[in-house]
Design a binder for these strands. Structure first.
Lengths: 122, 122
DNA sequence: AACATAGTTGAATGATTGTTCAACTGTTTC
DNA sequence: GAAACAGTTGAACAATCATTCAACTATGTT
């Protein structure tokens, strides 16, 4: 039997065509929480500005002003996005005088981007 | 000198602090178009439902009804998301009678998800 | 032919989100 | 101390998006 969800109400408007497949796959699925976190991570990658920032920081440590000039955006817009990247533990920063220097905080990023590019150029 | 953008108007409200870094990084950046496509791809990954569908299809070929039961969602909602995945060339399908069977159309997906999980569990 | 089921589709809606704007903090320099 | 600059922040706005709903197509069954 198909396992019921939390509330016991089946939202789906059909009966399983291949019950054995569904139950088997259900067992092999990661925890709901992990899948949610995974989607949240990709959501961070799912914005042109953030992708550009990450790609840039993969090449060099940069301050907010540098990134602003590079991407031709306001410091504010860049700062907002850096905050998102910071919260996702993708970038780290160090302060030096008036400047705040950002750099990558994860060595998986380049690999993930490579794989993404591989899919696009196919 | 920092290269001007298309319209010649600098949106950024500051002068580059490290001009040489900016120009060097700018040279090493991929084409605007490729970075856009990359972000678009990750945008597809950036939704819990789609992540679940892809993870499920990595384990077995399934029809819409199966996925609906597995995720406890309406066929309509699942079908909408399958369309997005189809457009991104991430899933393919075959028709058989009343059923439409979906399966993965890219062997990078599992690797990308693995790397994403690696970042989360750190 | 009529009916049930699998799946798709378009419009509508509520929620999320990226950028802008203005105001702010903090550091350096004159 | 005041001006200048780097960076942050919160509210507001426009745009995007995931799900729902209702109507539809198409295939199989009786």
């Amino acid at each position: 039997m198909i396992e019921m969800m939390d509330n016991g109400i089946l939202r789906c408007d059909c009966s399983a065509v291949h019950e054995e497949v569904v139950t088997r796959v259900k067992k092999q699925m990661p925890k709901e929480e992990n899948l949610y976190d995974l989607a949240e991570l990709f959501k961070v990658f799912g914005d042109t500005t953030r992708v550009k920032i990450l790609w840039a920081l993969d090449n060099a440590e940069m301050c907010v002003c540098d990134i602003s000039v590079l991407l031709n955006m306001t410091k504010s817009a860049v700062s907002h996005q850096l905050r998102v990247l910071k919260q996702a533990r993708l970038v780290k920063y160090r302060k030096d005088g008036k400047n705040v220097y950002y750099s990558l905080d994860d060595n998986h990023i380049a690999s993930i981007f490579e794989l993404g590019m591989a899919h696009i150029n196919e």
